[in-house]
């Protein structure tokens, strides 16, 4: 099975590898994994609390080329989107963009899960922040 050119491109030149400050209230962190293959993926978003727009996204993935490419692509797509738009990203979008074969679809699912987990973490932080200063969310 050969990787598509887009997968190879993301694998060889992954975008937005790195990490953001986990304790920053505007940063949401999603950590997901796949026991079957041992993959683990960390994806983080930094959100502008005024506009709800994702200003930065970083990832670090330990896994196969498809898992790395899926999360790399995800961070590219996340930048500039609002958190609600980000939740619209579907694993099938990633599959189509990267031409992933059926045996690698679970990698795109992992990336979608990571996005949801990161946004969920940000929302949780934002809600508790609002609560602590007495603002109704």
């Amino acid at each position: 099975m050969a990787y598509s050119n887009k997968v190879l491109d993301h694998y060889n030149n992954p975008r937005n590898v790195g990490s953001l400050d986990k304790s920053d209230p505007n940063v949401g962190t999603g950590m997901v994994g796949a026991p079957e293959c041992g993959d683990v993926m960390k994806l983080q978003v930094k959100v502008n609390p005024e506009t709800g727009v994702i200003e930065d996204a970083k990832f670090k993935t330990f896994g196969c080329g498809s898992a790395i490419a899926s999360s790399s692509l995800a961070t590219e797509w996340l930048r500039g989107k609002t958190v609600d738009e980000a939740l619209e990203i579907k694993n099938t979008d990633i599959v189509n963009e990267l031409s992933l074969p059926p045996v690698k679809i679970h990698c795109s699912v992992l990336a979608e899960d990571a996005i949801k987990a990161a946004i969920g973490d940000y929302k949780k932080k934002a809600a508790s922040k609002n609560q602590s200063v007495g603002v109704n969310a």
């Binding site: 950590m31 997901v32 994994g33 796949a34 026991p35 079957e36 041992g38 683990v40 960390k42 670090k60 330990f62 992992l110 899960d113």
Partner: peptide
């Protein structure tokens, strides 16, 4: 089998 593992384990694996 599923992807369900405790978050602490994921952290350690990472």
């Amino acid at each position: 089998l599923s992807k369900d593992v405790p978050p602490e384990l994921l952290e350690e694996v990472f």
